[in-house]
């Protein structure tokens, strides 16, 4: 194996990893914002319309394959005249899909907070919003953390899907290099190692955070 191939693989996978990290971070940010906002709204209101809207969003995005949704966003919208760059489509697409997942993670986190906590908050005269912000949210986030970690790891793996809409992440670059060099086993093996490194780093980070926050 010559050193030029080695260099090409390192270059491709490193730049791919940077894109993967960008897509993951962007999609995670979008997913967390949507998840927190909608789960909080659902927690704070008994308004039927809000709950129905959240339910429809969750069911729609959970029951459509991610690839279909990404194609819809990237190719479908382009056909209608809204052209998104592949990066924007990737972040937005995975973020919207992730929002449907994180809503339920946050909601079960909030529900895991014992009911006496909210009762004590109400009894001292906190408004429902203040009680949520000061008492339920901080505790609920701790309960949600392990599941959020699992989601973040699944998200890293799912970013491989956005190769299909030409976002130059790890798998996209790997496949291109395979097409040029036919070093299939070596390149995909190296790609797998890069993913493994990324996912295990996140897992480490989350368990560190968990220990710091000491969920009780």
């Amino acid at each position: 194996m010559d050193s030029s191939l080695m260099n090409a693989v390192v270059d491709a996978l490193l730049s791919g990893a940077v894109t993967t990290i960008k897509v993951t971070a962007g999609a995670l940010a979008v997913a967390l914002c949507i998840g927190i906002a909608l789960s909080a709204a659902a927690f704070l209101t008994s308004n039927f319309v809000v709950h129905a809207a959240v339910r429809i969003y969750v069911e729609a995005l959970r029951n459509v394959p991610s690839l279909t949704f990404l194609f819809l966003l990237y190719f479908g919208l382009a056909a209608l005249g809204f052209r998104l760059s592949s990066m924007v489509a990737a972040i937005l697409g995975l973020g919207l899909i992730g929002g449907a997942i994180t809503i339920d993670i946050f909601r079960s986190g909030f529900q895991a907070v014992p009911s006496g906590q909210a009762e004590a908050a109400a009894s001292i005269g906190l408004t429902p919003l203040a009680a949520f912000r000061l008492i339920i949210l901080p505790q609920g986030l701790r309960f949600a953390l392990p599941s959020l970690g699992n989601y973040a790891i699944a998200l890293i793996k799912d970013t491989s899907l956005v190769a299909a809409i030409a976002a130059p992440e790890i798998m996209f670059n790997a496949r291109q290099l395979v097409n040029e060099t036919f070093e299939t086993a070596f390149i995909y093996g190296a790609a797998a190692l890069v993913y493994l490194f990324l996912t295990m780093s996140v897992a480490q980070g989350v368990s560190l955070l968990e220990r710091r926050l000491e969920v009780r």
Partner: peptide, 24 residues
């Protein structure tokens, strides 16, 4: 609503059987 009740509840202190301190 709970929002309207808040100022009234503020005038009544309550001690619960299981304390319900906020652990965080």
């Amino acid at each position: 609503s709970d929002l309207e009740l808040a100022p009234q509840r503020a005038e009544i202190g309550m001690v619960f059987q299981h304390f319900h301190l906020w652990p965080h």
